[in-house]
Nucleic acid binder design. Structure first.
Lengths: 333, 333
DNA sequence: TGTCATTTTGCAACCGGTTGCAAAATATGT
DNA sequence: ACATATTTTGCAACCGGTTGCAAAATGACA
């Protein structure tokens, strides 16, 4: 068993409170005392039990990191950034995988049992009631990559997916395509819905351009490939806005396999600008999502909420921009 | 603040022990009592504080999930499998990102402060002393994807990287290549070293075949691409065993860009069989690493160690096999 | 050196649970 | 209905810390 505060106190010949105070910053301890205690502690190899102290302080420094995106490579980067960012601030990510969870109940209970200080929901596909459920349990919540103001009471950090849809549409129109397509991700993901809305709203300003749309079954390579193969069989559009980069890459492979080429026969623009998008054998034109900034901001927000749990909920939106690569034909004129 | 056991006891008009026992399975409680308590608990929305109970039971059900591989897409799958597998057994993964950690000290201290019940080190690149450090702190450890018997005292679950190196060499020789190359990952990764050793040892049995070798700086697309571009500039080998699939895909892109083609001009075989390897626009011949089995077995081992902390350390090795796709020329004969 | 303000220290109660033990309640057998 | 075996329950101590409060020690000043 591990060394306890009591043993350190005995060895140092002081009270338990003295030891506790030595390891609590801001507490009043004389230099002499501190030296005695630190000596004894290091002799014994003592390190305080964070969970025991959480009982009285009410803080565990545990943050639930909740996600259901374990198949999109971009989320590996998200996890990397979150874990490091949290660690740097002395917080510990308790990872929760929500894949095929229908309702938030179980996770909420679990995270409450572990008295997490806060929850970060990192997902662009979870319905808003998940984040809401944590909030209702009285835990500070930040929904990263979530739908803007999807739910009052919950802080959201992410992008404006509707605007991204518009931006994609605008880009395709500018390039002079006369028939454009929206090839979305799963239809029940909030991000898909918003991108669709934005795309269509922008296109309605360009009645001369033909528009069609469809949805892939998941944000995955296979789904993108399958859907694009299907589209290419009938009368395809000249260019597509694909739900995200993984879908785009799947679509690219379908184009290649159909003895067509990008951007000559079909144009494609993705969304995310994942690392792979710039690989030379992919070279995907896409809309850049500032992941690093979103994660950093989410963590900052979380940290301030720890001191201010009832902070008025805000939505932080980061602008996106088109990254020009090789899958869309050059600007018209 | 959350509802406590005491409040439930008061509302149900019973002792605190009764409430505690109702929520502890295996404890002796009459049906009548149980009903009373459960009623009160659900009225109040009580759920027991896992950390408080850990204080007396000595178990937190927290498992440290330690890794430094946050750039290799294959690890997203690893995290997915680990988190779900652990959750299914009522265990909670506390994620630790060791990227650019030089020594294990900090993480060991942190994980001890949180009294994790065990630690899974999931990395093919961490030096063995990391896993060892956790073990020395008296915490049950499983090193997944680690070097076989790299360190006594530590359980290892993974593949035989040396054998994989041999297998790759054997495969290339069988295909009739007369000059083969080893293009490894970072030279300080144990997996790289072992694959190298195996590759060379097998090749030494084929003195007529010319062998060369070099190392990329990281297990990443860019590094693989850069290294292959460099190799192609001088007299390249006819086929390469690349350190892993990500490196291979980088190498493929270099081959494409040099107006060469795979497998006609250069053969490539990777290792891992990550999901991307079977994407039609990549179609990489590679050695399959049974990730799912490794993770499952690691978790099983971890679970048994929770009851048997001093279990004699074992090494579990899973066989790999070549997956035939399109980047190596067909069998000779 | 004595008085008073300030800092340091220890006591004891508490955080939210668990558990050994003995008393109370219930079940069993005659 | 009684004696005895078995189960259920509550008491109280404990897990490893923290913290308000008052006493003890130290410092400041005359």
């Amino acid at each position: 068993m591990a060394i306890t505060l009591k043993e350190v106190a005995e060895r140092a010949g002081v009270s338990r409170s003295a030891v506790s105070r030595t390891f609590t910053d801001g507490a009043s301890v004389s230099d002499k005392m501190r030296r005695k205690v630190e000596k004894a502690a290091s002799d014994l190899g003592y390190s305080p039990n964070a969970l025991a102290s959480s009982l009285t302080t009410g803080r565990t420094k545990l943050i639930g990191l909740v996600s259901n995106n374990f198949h999109n490579p971009i989320f590996l980067e998200v996890f990397d950034l979150f874990t490091r960012g949290l660690q740097d601030r002395g917080l510990r990510p308790l990872l929760v995988n929500l894949t095929d969870e229908i309702n938030p109940e179980n996770s909420v209970r679990m995270l409450r049992q572990y008295s997490v200080d806060g929850v970060v929901v990192a997902s662009s596909t979870l319905p808003p009631n998940f984040a809401k459920a944590f909030r209702d349990a009285g835990v500070p919540v930040v929904h990263s990559f979530g739908r803007a103001s999807s739910s009052p009471q919950v802080h959201v950090v992410g992008i404006d997916n509707t605007e991204c849809g518009r931006m994609a549409a605008r880009t395709l129109v500018e390039r002079g395509y006369n028939h454009v397509g929206f090839m979305g991700g799963p239809q029940d993901a909030t991000s898909t819905q918003d991108r669709y809305t934005g795309f269509m709203s922008e296109m309605s300003a360009h009645p001369k351009v033909k528009v069609s749309y469809s949805f892939a079954e998941a944000y995955s390579f296979d789904a993108g490939r399958r859907e694009m193969l299907r589209l290419l069989r009938a009368a395809p559009a000249e260019a597509y806005f694909c739900g995200d980069d993984v879908l785009s890459i799947g679509a690219l492979s379908a184009v290649d396999d159909s003895d067509l080429s990008c951007p000559n026969d079909v144009g494609i623009i993705g969304l995310n600008d994942m690392e792979m998008a710039k690989w030379e054998n992919i070279n995907l034109t896409t809309i850049h999502q500032p992941i690093r900034q979103i994660v950093t901001s989410s963590i900052e927000l979380m940290v301030t909420m720890l001191d201010e749990p009832d902070r008025y909920p805000e939505t932080r939106i980061f602008p996106c921009s088109v990254v020009e690569r090789g899958t869309l034909r050059a600007q018209a004129n």
